[in-house]
Design a protein around this nucleic acid. Structure first.
Lengths: 313, 313
DNA sequence: GTGATCCCATAGGCGACGCCTATCGCTGCT
DNA sequence: AGCAGCGATAGGCGTCGCCTATGGGATCAC
């Protein structure tokens, strides 16, 4: 059975005439006759009664007719749907982001994306870098804004485009003495100062503890665990100091103390499955993301990383 | 777009593997790859992401998938349905019959037919010969039990197989003197006897009036018009005599008076559209009808007409 | 009744397309 | 480094669908 045969059946049924149907279908009449016959042979049943007064459907033909109509309409609809997807008039893009980024750029970028491509549904997954990277690999996400480092086991499967380098700063709340002097401190200034650490899984936690250990002491822990929001709240009410990304610190309105060179920093970038590449919708997402990053002025604590267009891992 | 391509898409989507899908489909892997690619080119969109960790559907592929599934299932269902129709496990046969026949053989034959082919729905149309013949020609009926003569304009388009010749007899009711003597009369015996005539359209009416006129007198009309049932009822209560088919007369329990040779008679037979022929179901109907006619013993007033298998008109 | 016309079926040639085998390119594993 | 797995590519081959030309049956007009 063949789709052209179904089309032929439809046309013959509607014109009740082989010759006219052939003309409408832009084929020679013998071709039409042959195809109909072939289908009839395959089905083991006549579909039409060829009579002088016009061609009529047999019972079998009448049974086949609505199915043929529906099938052809279905496929036409599917074609149209695929068209819409490729033209980004419909679809979906599954974006991942770490919590700090979801509350930052991602919110604005997704809003702009939704405005630019109203037919495309953006699905946001908020999680840690390693989890998001794994979900990229599994094909559950199309693209994700992540923070280096990636899990080494996945770095081969994931393409990563670094976008922004952001300083990590020490934040303190009201009624707390900021470490160091004139808004600048060294890691040694954190000695014996109580620190608020986010839970395991946040790269910030490793950054903070590493900083202390490299300076030769164990961090004194005020509160251990919790999400970033909790850390901010704890710092705000004076529970201790914390190491935060500069942007998040500024957004939270906390007192910022920069660390002396080499200032710790984190690299934010876009990641996707290397072998799948970026879907059309994801490419658009990336474009809008880059616009937003480039149009935001670089500050003293964030640095745009120029993309050499060779997407490194 | 092609049905095999849809099948291929389905299999690849399910196995997530070109090579294995090709094996399941009993084609070489390059053929499969080629067909998928060809479909992708036609649609202008990739359907699969070819990656090392297994093939994944793109959004377009995911949109096409359910349609492909449904289309293939639909066509499978249609194939099965056509099968059932050709095997007479489903379907319809549209049978026409004149009123007298519908109350006679047709009722029994249709019962037997429904029992033999429970999946086939018999549709009965009860009307006069000329109307039924016209509906045969239009393709509204598959087969009909008619009474000669057919409308001459249709005799070319309608095939007619004569089956039974039935005598027409004079019937009288209670309290009426039957015409003639010893159950036999001549047309002349009807002179001045009030007659009940069915309405125009019944061939019986022409038979009756023709009989009188050939004998040299105009029929004296007791009641004119009405269906056959009304005629029978009128005769039964003594309104007059009537000319009826022998079987109907016997069924009605009326007093029967046969006419002397040449006794008027009518020919009953099966008719169908000559160019369309008999559908499978109609052939079965005919077979059961013939069984019934042959197994009913020929009486003195009905005569089976042997079919020389050359179906004359 | 004879030619004209209509309509579907058949015959034969031709080009396209799908399937095949063989092979390549790439990746991941041992 | 060599091998195995997997999909893409290349080239040959057979089939199949489409074409033109023609057949055959029926209807219609004169």
């Amino acid at each position: 059975m063949q789709l052209t045969q179904l089309r032929y059946v439809l046309e013959v049924a509607e014109t009740r005439h082989f010759t006219r149907a052939a003309r409408n279908l832009h084929v020679a009449q013998p071709s039409l006759s042959q195809q109909i016959r072939s289908l009839e042979r395959e089905l083991g049943a006549a579909l039409f009664v060829r009579a002088r007064g016009g061609v009529t459907l047999t019972e079998a033909g009448a049974a086949l007719l609505p199915v043929a109509r529906r099938v052809l309409a279905d496929l036409d609809g599917a074609r149209r749907e695929v068209q819409e997807i490729t033209q980004l008039r419909r679809g979906r893009v599954r974006v991942g982001g770490t919590p700090s980024l979801c509350q930052g750029v991602l919110a604005e970028v997704l809003r702009a994306f939704a405005q630019r491509w109203p037919g495309i549904e953006p699905c946001l997954a908020e999680s840690g870098t390693s989890d998001l990277a794994e979900r990229l690999r599994l094909g559950e996400l199309d693209v994700a804004l992540l923070i280096l480092p990636l899990p080494s086991a996945l770095s081969a499967a994931i393409a990563f485009e670094p976008l922004v380098r952001e300083e990590l700063v020490i934040v303190s709340g009201t009624g707390q003495l900021p470490p160091g002097e004139r808004g600048v401190c060294t890691p040694a200034d954190l000695h014996e100062r109580p620190l608020v650490l986010p839970r395991h899984g946040y790269a910030l936690r490793e950054h903070a503890t590493g900083l202390c250990r490299q300076a030769g002491f164990e961090p004194k822990i005020a509160v251990d665990g919790g999400e970033l929001d909790a850390v901010i709240a704890l710092v705000r009410c004076g529970a201790g100091l914390a190491l935060l990304p500069a942007i998040a610190a500024r957004r939270a309105g906390l007192t910022i103390t920069r660390l002396t060179e080499p200032a710790p920093q984190r690299t934010i970038g876009l990641a996707w499955r290397r072998d799948a590449g970026l879907s059309r919708a994801a490419q658009e997402f990336r474009a809008i993301l880059l616009e937003h990053i480039d149009q935001a002025p670089a500050t003293d604590v964030t640095h745009r990383i120029a993309a050499p267009d060779g997407h490194s891992s």
